[in-house]
């Protein structure tokens, strides 16, 4: 089979994933997009491995590791999203602004104080 097919497919997958990472606001969807990117890489690696007729099968070996990495990432990622959701009832990455630097006037300052107190109370 020609190398172009898997390569183009992988490129498409990766681009979709990248778009998802950049455009999606829900943390879970961002996570899924990242997985898409990783799988594109896997596809690439396997295809190149076959194409190169690599006697060591480095590409396939790395693929195994990438699968593991992806699984570990998704595991930790979901746990963190869950934690965020429990703590504030949303998984929208745009709404996570407690940590952002505040440059506004004194009004904003008060909000920060309030958030601070809440955080302390929660801790």
């Amino acid at each position: 089979m020609h190398l172009a097919y898997p390569a183009v497919l992988a490129a498409l997958l990766f681009s979709i994933g990248l778009y998802g990472v950049l455009a999606r606001r829900n943390a879970i969807l961002v996570l899924m997009s990242v997985e898409l990117m990783l799988n594109a890489v896997n596809l690439n690696l396997v295809a190149f491995d076959v194409w190169l007729r690599d006697k060591l099968h480095s590409g396939q070996a790395l693929t195994l590791f990438v699968i593991v990495i992806a699984a570990a990432e998704i595991g930790i990622g979901l746990a963190i999203v869950l934690l965020v959701y429990r703590n504030r009832g949303t998984a929208d990455v745009d709404k996570l602004t407690d940590l952002a630097e505040r440059t506004g006037g004194p009004g904003r300052e008060d909000q920060a104080e309030e958030a601070e107190k809440k955080a302390e109370a929660a801790a």
Partner: peptide, 17 residues
């Protein structure tokens, strides 16, 4: 169930080795 899925992912992926 989430914890189970967690366990599963970890183990299943390990078992591909």
């Amino acid at each position: 169930y989430y914890v189970y899925s967690f366990l599963y992912v970890v183990f299943a992926v390990d078992s591909i080795f």
